[in-house]
Design a protein around this nucleic acid. Structure first.
Length: 272
DNA sequence: AGTGCGACCCGAACGC
DNA sequence: TGCGTTCGGGTCGCAC
């Protein structure tokens, strides 16, 4: 998916486009995308406004006053703001129309994304939200917290970094980058990670995510954030998607392996 | 409880 | 040119 930096970019972009506009209609083209009651979805949204857009981990949270619209972009979800009379693209699945005749359109080639409309007081009953771990940009992410969560696990550290209940917001791209900066081999078991290495992971995660947010995210293949905004972090990637290219640190060829079913890129010299 | 893997979808890239 | 196969930025649920 868009990872935390991409979601943050979408959030900031959309805040400038859709806040405080009254919703006049909702067109649900692909109902499976909605996890809450379909009828309620339309009825509740019409007449309301988005008064804010928040984010928890990779979840976008549209604030409707008494309700939240939760939106997870998964792999390829995007939002576009278009004039209502523009033709509907085949990958646009949910269309929210405002009284000024603009649309907020949810576009998702693979239809993996999900939305969930809930009463505000029920936010903490949403399992995925409740279980979110600590974000890299939060100072509560300490080496002690990480060590406690990691040191009894027999899984590769790469797999652990993708677990949203430990660190919230890292995906496949930034997990590889964090391990490179930390000089840790992606296959190293959680139980073999030292407290010092947890400190490295914590520092690297913060560094990578802060820089990626400043860049507006990364663009790989299909991902551009809403409104065609293209992330610029790609130029700073040290290992991800760089198989057979040379390590920017030591000139060794970057290699690609599978870890937990996910493509994983690393420098065999820097990350022993 | 912890771990591994298929399923959810579709388009792009690749092999023949 | 065309057809079949493989792969993927994420997460969930099921089986062991």
């Amino acid at each position: 998916m868009p990872e935390i930096a991409e979601v943050e970019t979408v959030r900031n972009t959309l805040k400038n486009m859709v806040l405080n506009k009254t919703i006049k209609d909702v067109n649900i083209i692909y109902p499976k995308m909605i996890e809450s009651d379909i009828k309620d979805f339309k009825n509740i949204l019409i007449g309301k406004k988005f008064i804010d857009i928040k984010r928890i981990g990779k979840w976008l949270i549209f604030d409707l006053g008494d309700y939240y619209l939760l939106s997870h972009l998964r792999m390829e979800g995007k939002y576009f703001v278009k004039e209502h009379n523009e033709e509907i693209n085949k990958h646009e699945h949910i269309i929210i129309t405002f009284t000024d005749n603009t649309d907020l359109r949810y576009h998702d080639t693979r239809k993996f994304g999900r939305m969930n409309l809930i009463k505000k007081e029920n936010l903490n009953e949403v399992e995925a939200i409740k279980k979110q771990g600590i974000e890299p940009i939060n100072d509560n992410l300490t080496k002690e917290y990480l060590y406690e969560k990691i040191h009894k696990k027999n899984l590769p550290i790469k797999t652990i970094l993708l677990d949203q209940t430990i660190i919230s917001g890292l995906g496949n791209i930034y997990a590889d980058e964090v391990l490179f900066l930390s000089k840790i081999n992606p296959l190293k078991k959680g139980s073999d990670i030292t407290l010092d290495e947890c400190e490295m992971i914590k520092k690297s995660a913060k560094e990578v995510i802060e820089k990626a947010i400043l860049c507006g995210g990364t663009t790989i293949k299909s991902y551009t954030s809403s409104l065609g905004v293209t992330g610029r972090f790609q130029q700073y990637l040290m290992v991800h998607k760089r198989e057979n290219e040379l390590c920017k640190n030591c000139n060794t060829s970057i290699i690609r392996i599978k870890v937990g079913g996910r493509s994983t890129y690393y420098c065999p010299n820097c990350q022993k």
